[in-house]
Design a protein around this nucleic acid. Structure first.
Length: 482
RNA sequence: UCCUAAGUAGCUCAGCUGGUUAGAGCAUCUGACUGUUAAUCAGAGGGUCCCUGGUUCGAGUCCAGGCUUGGGAGCCA
């Protein structure tokens, strides 16, 4: 194929009157003369000027929105106002036609709901072009951050046999037939006949395996798909999502919080530096959207301002107990505006409470630590009971404005006897997790880690509000199209 | 799963207290124009009113059930 010039390069070029070949998809064709051409290399379009008097009617008719074309001609300074350069097409080839009556994208605003229905084509819009460029940059920044610090990128399994983690409903993995399924004498399914010789599921977290790696490699992280079969219908849950899970040996909760905060700030800095056009576009997009909201619901920062603010300020770090005190004294609690009123220590925080802390009280990201043991997982390190005998664990959740829980993590319980006691208490079978317990038997050490929901990060950075719009092909209840 | 709103042309939406042939803007098609920026002007075509039942002389409109979607809640990342 003829070597094409990327539009991103051409728009920056000043090599006027040289011949170039460009290939891309037609956004609009105005006045039978002007093609707005996009090849995905950047957000902006290149104007290709067609000499319609000397171009066959047959070709002109095929230059429709969505068609793929190749154009060769001189790069010149634009005569028109909206752009600095343009290509005067000497030859024009239609690579792939696009029936204008059937192509669903028009040169106008489409609702995000409609675009979700045509997720296979929504990449061709400015908005999704920007979102997936930013998503890519975020992913790259994650790897760069950890690589610079000597972390090992560990590939934990996607299929797991343990269903003891309690992190949520799991998708079953099986090759057993749906009919005449082999049964045990008691009528239950005989998984010995199944592919793995036992029941298997898609992973809900790589943490336990990650800990095994950290207890030898020192510092590891995972970054892969995660699956939850919860019937969650919200703007911040997916059945298939990507999670980043670092795990660090010889680290406590303090180190863990520092790592998470540094990671988030590093990534945001990277994107501010490397995705200027995309963030500028998304900032404008969000501002437009905010215009339709009532004044009191609009945010005080625009998207860029919000990201900048996040970098310039330390995340607020408070304990659960302190948070409860703040919430108890808060106006919405005293005026009984909360749906769930905060009355006593031990209550799980509802999202209205988290939002109050983050969006009203502190107005910045908040790290909540030391939750009551009763509402947290078995593997979190137990604190000494306080003077009132209340038990807490060394957990931390990082809450972001508009997103809620972005990060959930903890210092891990490294003391074998404590861990076993907790597992018994929570009815987690020790024999199934013998391999996990082995790390505490042989050379146990303090360690800590967390899980960062990648799509939630993309939401925050792009200013989008529905998690289904920041992953190419979202999976959620009743939907696995594409 | 619960609460709530919605589903009408390719898209966004109007359609009153049930009434004759269901509308608009954009898109599409045809023609005009030709340095346009979501081009402009004139005309034309385009409908399983989400599905299944029911009430009624008559249902886009009312009732019941279902499906899907948006928003909120729960589960969580």
């Amino acid at each position: 194929m003829i070597k094409r010039e990327k539009i991103s390069n051409i728009l920056k070029s000043t090599n006027f009157n040289t011949e170039v070949t460009v290939m891309g998809w037609v956004k609009t064709f105005r006045n039978n003369q002007f093609i707005a051409l996009n090849d995905g290399s950047c957000m902006n379009n290149l104007q290709v000027v067609v000499d319609f008097a000397n171009t066959s009617e047959e070709i002109l008719k095929k230059i429709t929105t969505g068609a793929a074309i190749a154009a060769t001609g001189l790069l010149v300074e634009s005569l028109g106002k909206g752009q600095s350069v343009e290509v005067k097409a000497a030859t024009l080839e239609v690579l792939g036609e696009s029936d204008a009556e059937k192509f669903p994208l028009q040169p106008k605003k489409h609702s995000l709901e409609f675009l979700r229905d045509i997720a296979h084509l929504r990449f061709r819009t400015n908005t999704f072009n920007a979102i997936f460029k930013v998503r890519n940059a975020l992913a790259f920044a994650v790897h760069q951050f950890f690589n610079e610090r000597g972390f090992v990128y560990l590939h934990t399994p996607i299929i797991t046999a343990s269903d003891a983690e309690g992190a949520g409903e799991m998708f079953r993995v099986t090759t057993l037939p749906f009919e005449n399924t082999p049964k045990n004498e008691d009528g239950s399914i005989d998984f010995k006949e199944d592919f793995f010789g036992r029941s298997a599921n898609l992973t809900v977290s790589g943490q336990l395996e990650g800990e095994l790696g950290a207890m030898a490699l020192g510092e590891i992280y995972t970054f892969g798909p995660t699956f939850r079969a919860e019937n969650s219908n919200t703007t911040r849950h997916l059945a298939e999502f990507w999670m980043i899970e670092p795990e660090v040996a010889f680290a406590d909760l303090e180190d863990n919080m520092n790592l998470a905060e540094n990671l988030l700030k590093y990534i945001i800095t990277y994107v501010l530096k490397n995705c200027k056009d995309e963030l500028a576009f998304l900032t404008t997009r969000l501002a437009e959207e905010e215009k339709s909201k009532p004044q009191n619901e609009r945010s005080e920062f625009d998207l860029m301002g919000k990201l900048q603010f996040c970098l310039e300020n330390n995340f607020e770090r408070i304990t659960y107990t302190e948070a409860i005190e703040i919430l108890k004294r808060s106006k919405p609690n005293q005026k009984k505006q909360f749906k769930y009123l905060i009355e006593e220590w031990g209550a799980d925080l509802q999202s209205e409470h988290e939002r109050y802390l983050v969006e009203k009280h502190f107005k910045k990201p908040v790290i909540l630590t030391d939750y009551p043991a009763d509402i947290k997982s078995f593997y979190m390190r137990m604190n000494e009971p306080d003077e009132q005998g209340r038990r807490t664990v060394r957990a931390m959740d990082i809450l972001f404005p508009g997103i809620g829980e972005m990060v959930g993590g903890s210092q891990r319980e490294e003391r074998l006897d404590y861990l076993k006691a907790r597992m018994d208490e929570m009815h987690i079978p020790q024999d199934e997790l013998y391999w996990y317990l082995d790390t505490r038997k042989f050379g146990t050490a303090p360690h800590a880690g967390f899980g960062l929901g990648f799509e939630r990060l993309v939401l925050f950075v792009t200013g989008m509000t529905n998690i289904r719009d920041v992953i190419p092909f979202p999976r959620f209840p009743k939907n696995a199209e594409f």
